[in-house]
Amino acid sequence: MAVYIGEVAKKTGLSVKAIRFYEEKDLIIAPKRKGVYRVYTPEHIEVLKLISEAKDLGVTLSELKGVIKYHNGSANWTEINAFLVVVKQRLENELQAISEKIAKLDICIGSINSCQKTA
């Protein structure tokens, strides 16, 4: 069954314009054509979902461009997985840093509240 760009947009939550943009940037392999229509594969859809989700996590298109590589028409999911592990670690580090800042704020707030009670 042929999957055209409108259906891909529905399945991925991306706009047609965004899908074409990702094609232009070589983040996805240009789909084969059936007449004048692009025909997308499940692989296209999975990579587009990955791009959408990664962007939501703060990953840049430049970073994605460096990691989404193709071999014989298929994305290198092993390399993508390794990259996602790095992104997860980066987010965990950010979470730790934020937790430390919150702890410092709690100390400041506690100090201020103590001063107000003794005043």
Rank of each mutant, 00 (worst) to 15 (best):
K104I: 03
A18L: 08
V39I: 13
K11M: 15
E94S: 12
K32F: 05
E46P: 04
K32G: 10
H71C: 04
K25D: 08
V47A: 11
G110H: 07
V3Q: 05
S15N: 08
L50T: 14
R20A: 10
Q116R: 14
S99R: 15
T60D: 00
E23M: 09
I51V: 11
I102R: 08
Q96W: 03
A82E: 06
K117M: 14
N81E: 13
K17W: 10
N93L: 11
L64E: 01
A103D: 09
W77C: 00
A119S: 15
S62W: 03
K104H: 04
K101Y: 06
F21R: 00
P42C: 06
G35S: 00
S62V: 11
I51S: 05
V59W: 01
P31V: 08
S114G: 05
G13E: 12
R33E: 07
E92N: 14
A103G: 02
G66E: 00
I98K: 15
A18Q: 11
I107S: 04
I80S: 00
G35M: 01
I28N: 00
V67E: 02
K69Q: 10
L84K: 07
N76C: 06
A82L: 07
K34E: 14
G6L: 02
I5Y: 02
H44Q: 10
I51T: 04
S15F: 08
D56Y: 08
I28C: 04
P42Q: 15
C115L: 13
K88E: 11
T12M: 12
F21N: 01
L91M: 13
V86K: 12
K34R: 13
D56W: 02
K25C: 09
S99Y: 07
V85T: 09
E100W: 03
A103Q: 10
K17N: 12
K25H: 12
T12E: 10
K65E: 03
